[in-house]
Deep mutational scan, measured.
Amino acid sequence: MKVTIEENEETGKFTIKVKTEDGEEKTIEIPKENLEEILAKLPPNVEII
């Protein structure tokens, strides 16, 4: 699983794009305050880009 994290400076939010092993892609946008909480919940086999 690969996770790409991009900061949107205009909105102050982060866009998180997840690509699973089977090629499925999902995108979510979260507030900056929630980034550490989300990262802590990721499984250890995740590659963060």
Results as ranks from 00 to 15, higher is better:
T4K: 03
E29W: 07
P31N: 13
K26W: 15
K26E: 10
L35W: 07
E25G: 02
L42F: 13
P31M: 12
E21M: 10
D22P: 01
G12F: 02
L39T: 00
L42Q: 00
V18R: 00
E9A: 13
E25A: 04
K19G: 03
E47L: 12
K41M: 13
K26D: 04
P43S: 08
T20M: 12
M1G: 05
T11I: 02
E21L: 12
K13R: 12
E7N: 05
E10M: 09
E33G: 09
K41R: 12
I28C: 15
E9I: 12
E36R: 12
K2R: 13
E47K: 10
N8W: 02
K41D: 06
K13T: 11
V46C: 11
A40I: 04
I30Q: 00
L39E: 00
G12C: 10
E47N: 05
E7G: 05
P44M: 10
P44S: 09
K13V: 10
K17A: 06
E25H: 05
N34S: 12
T20V: 04
P44T: 08
I5S: 01
I30G: 03
E6R: 05
E7K: 09
I16T: 01
E37S: 08
T11A: 03
K41N: 11
E29H: 08
I28K: 01
E29S: 08
L35G: 00
E21Y: 08
K19N: 06
I5C: 07
P43M: 10
M1K: 03
K19I: 15
K41P: 01
I16Y: 02
N8Q: 04
E6A: 06
T4G: 01
E47S: 07
I38K: 01
T4I: 12
V46A: 10
E36F: 13
P43D: 06
N8S: 07
E7S: 06
T11S: 07
E37D: 09
K26T: 14
V18S: 02
A40L: 07
V3F: 04
E36Q: 12
T4F: 14
L42V: 02
I30E: 00
N34D: 14
K17E: 05
I38Q: 04
I49G: 03
L42N: 00
M1Y: 05
G23D: 02
E25C: 13
E25S: 06
E33N: 07
I5L: 05
T15Y: 07
L35H: 01
D22F: 09
E9V: 14
I30R: 00
K41G: 11
E33V: 05
E9G: 10
E24S: 11
T4A: 04
I48C: 08
N8V: 03
L39Y: 01
G12H: 04
F14C: 15
P31W: 13
V18Q: 00
L35E: 00
E24H: 10
N8D: 09
L42M: 06
E6D: 05
P31V: 09
N34C: 15
E36K: 11
T15G: 05
I28V: 07
G12Q: 04
P31Y: 11
K41W: 11
P31G: 10
K13G: 15
K17S: 10
I16M: 04
P44L: 09
N34G: 12
T15M: 08
P43N: 06
V18K: 00
M1Q: 05
I5Y: 04
K32Y: 11
K13F: 12
P31R: 11
E10G: 09
T27C: 13
T15I: 15
I28R: 02
G23C: 06
T4M: 08
P43E: 05
T27K: 05
I48Y: 07
L39N: 00
I48T: 04
K32Q: 06
K41E: 06
E25W: 14
E6Q: 09
K17G: 02
E37Q: 11
A40G: 07
K17N: 11
K41S: 11
L42T: 01
E21Q: 12
N45Q: 06
E24G: 08
F14Y: 11
T20L: 10
T27N: 05
E9L: 12
E25D: 05
E33Y: 06
I48A: 02
K41Y: 08
V18D: 00
T15D: 08
E7T: 05
E33I: 05
E36C: 15
I48H: 03
T11K: 12
T20C: 15
T27L: 08
T11C: 13
I38G: 01
I30D: 00
D22H: 08
I28Q: 04
E10Y: 11
K19S: 09
K2D: 02
D22L: 07
I48V: 07
N34A: 14
E7D: 05
M1C: 14
F14G: 13
G23P: 00
I30K: 00
T20P: 03
N34Q: 15
E9Q: 11
T20F: 15
L35I: 06
M1H: 04
K2S: 11
V46R: 03
E6C: 14
T15A: 04
E6N: 05
P43W: 14
I48W: 11
E36A: 13
T4E: 06
E36D: 09
E33A: 10
K32D: 03
N45L: 06
V18F: 15
A40S: 12
I49K: 06
E6W: 14
N45T: 07
G12R: 02
E29K: 04
G23W: 02
T20I: 05
P43V: 06
L39M: 06
I30M: 05
V46L: 05
E29T: 11
E33P: 03
L39F: 04
T27R: 06
I16V: 12
E37A: 11
V18C: 15
E29D: 05
I16W: 00
K26A: 08
P44N: 09
P43I: 07
V3D: 01
V18N: 00
P31L: 12
I16E: 12
T27H: 07
L42A: 01
E33M: 06
A40F: 01
E7L: 15
E10H: 11
E25Y: 10
E7F: 15
E33C: 07
I38L: 13
E47F: 04
N34R: 14
P31C: 13
E36M: 13
I48M: 06
N45E: 06
K26S: 12
K17Y: 13
M1E: 03
V46I: 10
E47H: 11
I5Q: 01
N45S: 07
E6L: 10
E10R: 09
K32H: 07
N34W: 15
V3G: 01
I16R: 00
P44R: 09
N34V: 13
E21R: 09
K26L: 14
E9P: 13
T11M: 02
K2I: 13
E25N: 03
E21W: 11
N8G: 04
N45Y: 11
I28E: 04
E24Y: 12
E6P: 00
E24P: 05
I48G: 02
L39H: 00
T20K: 04
V46Q: 03
M1L: 09
N45R: 05
I28N: 01
K13P: 00
K13S: 13
K17C: 10
K2N: 06
